[in-house]
């Protein structure tokens, strides 16, 4: 049974996705949509992390349900820099690249959830399947958001 191992990877990837969302939301604070939605969507991943940790016990894995965020001092410094840097069209291009990274991270988490969902069906584990389907749908929405914002921003950031 390798489900525990995949859950551990998934736990790691969800934590990293949440951290990336928070880090980039603060970095692009001057873009209010990125700032607010980045924080909203990070909360989804943190909720997934708690649920993965609770589920993983059954598969022999002890995972941290509340891993720490990055240091608050770094966050506030990043916000300060963002507000100063918000007056340049160059930051838009940086933002598109960051969104691309978020899209890739979310897509990889999405694939992890697909694997878990398939395995849950194979061993007929309803609880695991329910978790995988519910979280997979939310991860897809995270990826779709990043993708839609890439599409929108590219029409401006790449042509100025």
């Amino acid at each position: 049974m390798k489900i525990g191992v995949v859950l551990r990877d998934l736990h790691h990837d969800e934590v990293e996705l949440a951290r990336a969302l928070l880090r980039m939301a603060d970095k692009h604070r001057a873009d209010h949509e990125f700032f607010h939605l980045g924080h909203d969507l990070a909360a989804w991943s943190m909720r997934h992390v708690r649920e993965i940790a609770a589920m993983a016990v059954r598969f022999g894995e002890q995972l941290d349900p509340e891993p720490a965020d990055s240091a608050p001092v770094v966050d506030s410094a990043r916000r300060w820099l963002s507000e100063r840097g918000g007056r340049s069209a160059e930051v838009e291009l940086v933002m598109v690249r960051d969104l691309r990274e978020l899209y890739l991270r979310a897509s990889s988490v999405l694939t992890d959830w697909e694997m878990i969902g398939q395995a849950a069906q194979a061993i007929v584990d309803d609880e695991l399947l329910e978790l995988a389907q519910r979280c997979q749908a939310e991860t897809k929405r995270q990826a779709t958001w990043a993708n839609s914002k890439i599409k929108e921003s590219s029409t401006q950031a790449l042509v100025v």
């Binding site: 209010h32 949509e33 007056r87 069209a89 930051v91 929108e152 401006q156």
Partner: peptide, 10 residues
């Protein structure tokens, strides 16, 4: 978003 583009100068 337009105001954001005015803000960033684009």
């Amino acid at each position: 978003q337009m105001m954001r583009y005015v803000e960033d100068g684009s």
